[in-house]
Amino acid sequence: MKKVVVSFLGKDGPGVVHAVSSLLTGLECNINEVSQTILHSEFAAIVIAEMPDGCTIEALQESLVKGLAERQIDLSVTARLYDGRSWSAEDPQSFVVSVDGPDQRGLVAAISGILGEHNVNIANLKAIVPDDQPDGHALIVFEVIVPGAVELSALRNALNAKAEELSVRVSVQHSDIFEAVHRVQPV
């Protein structure tokens, strides 16, 4: 039994999740884990599943594309083998990097560039348009994993320097503070 990772991207609507999951079931794949999100009208899902030994990646992808077309579901599909290897860091800490200021091209690239240089991995990224802010104001929230070896003050200085260059504000805060302030933790 091999594991595959399959991504689906396209128009959202009723029946999309059922189409994806029933097609995989029909191909004798067993879904292990799914993460799914919607951005405006667009649906995206990433699925890790077990694939029967007789099947190949190419055959799986072809069958999924064909099946979605038959059901008139507008999704593109990418399938690849899943090897279980993942980025890991010693003594990882979760931080939230938030950037806000005038929207401009290259904002995400500039900030993520600094993060990458410091070996900081982005676990979740969101651009939010705050209700109370004028048009053209961007708020970008990076949830990141900072390895224990990373010098926090160096990361902060690099981000501040870049933020100044771009005329935006940046803050780096341990994610515990967001959870502590808003959540009652389960016991």
């Binding site: 939230v96 806000d100 979740n124 939010i128 705050p130 967001f178 959870e179 302030v181």
Partner: peptide, 14 residues
């Protein structure tokens, strides 16, 4: 994963 509201409200407080 943090919600938009959690992030926005914490930043606004600060």
């Amino acid at each position: 994963m943090l919600s938009d509201r959690e992030v926005l409200s914490t930043l606004a407080m600060l």
